Simulated scan of single mutants.
Amino acid sequence: MLISIIIPTLNEETYIGQLLGYLNNHPQKDSIEIIVVDGGSQDKTLSIAGLHEGTLIETKIASRAHQMNEGAKQANGTILYFVHADTQLVDSFVQDIHVAHQNGFKSGCYRFKFHQPQNPLLHINGFFTRFPFKWCRGGDQTLFIDKGVFESIDGFDEKYVIMEDYDILDRIDAHQIPFKVIPKSVKVSSRKYDDNSYMKVQLTNLKAMKMYKHGTDPSEIRKFYCQSLDGKYKEDHLFLGNLKPHE
């Protein structure tokens, strides 16, 4: 059963080579398909990605929801696996996802922990990802979903230029699609905290979640998030490139 790994990128030269190198040398490489969907990187992301095996898609729309949908359209796998460029996967991910899928879980994710966290408080964030609450979830934990199920719920809603991960999780829940939190942890970068304090990030996340729950226009949530955080993370990781004309 083929797993299509879809990686949306924008200015990810620091991380993309490590992830693609890992995937290209994975012992179960024949069981995976690698798809990178770039949203208009201005650094070396494209040239680095081009050095590795896999499909490279370029789009002028820098928005994760759009990029991941574009990757899904070209995916050949039975299972779609959405992964951020700065994520370190669990070595057993192919087997883990296959077992979960065979046991009836058509969607799911991993727990997460930060890679080399500078602030011990970051361990708190990772700890809570073991619990079955949607506010503990997020795209950093990676997301696997049966391709047929993904298509049946119309994929990612592209109006969500931020919070697209929570929207699809809400729809997975609304459609009563079995969801599995695999009890292992992927590792994610703590770069968001390089230029922002722990409390600043948490309060920003809390306000953004409240805005999402109250039905605030995603572009307004995105604007708030961008204005609230400082540093290179804001410029690159939040996909501040071109959006669809109506956004």
Results as ranks from 00 to 15, higher is better:
N103E: 02
Q74T: 10
S63P: 02
S92D: 03
D91S: 12
F114P: 02
G108E: 01
D43R: 02
G40V: 05
K60Q: 06
Q42G: 15
P120I: 11
L46V: 10
D91Q: 07
I48R: 03
D91E: 03
V90K: 11
L80K: 08
Q95N: 11
Q88K: 13
H66R: 12
Q42N: 15
A62Y: 04
S47E: 13
S41H: 02
F112A: 02
D96I: 14
Y110I: 07
D91M: 09
G50M: 05
T87I: 12
Q88Y: 07
G108K: 09
T87A: 05
F105N: 06
H52C: 03
S63E: 10
H66W: 15
E70R: 15
N125E: 11
V90I: 13
N69T: 13
F105K: 07
A75G: 09
L46C: 13
M68R: 07
K106W: 09
N76F: 03
L80C: 01
G104Q: 03
A65N: 05
F114R: 05
F105T: 04
K113P: 00
S41V: 11
I48E: 01
R111E: 11
F112Q: 04
G39Q: 00
Q118V: 06
D91N: 15
K106F: 05
F82S: 01
Q116D: 04
S107Q: 12
F112L: 14
K60W: 15
H101Q: 12
A72V: 00
Q88C: 02
F82K: 12
L56H: 04
A49S: 14
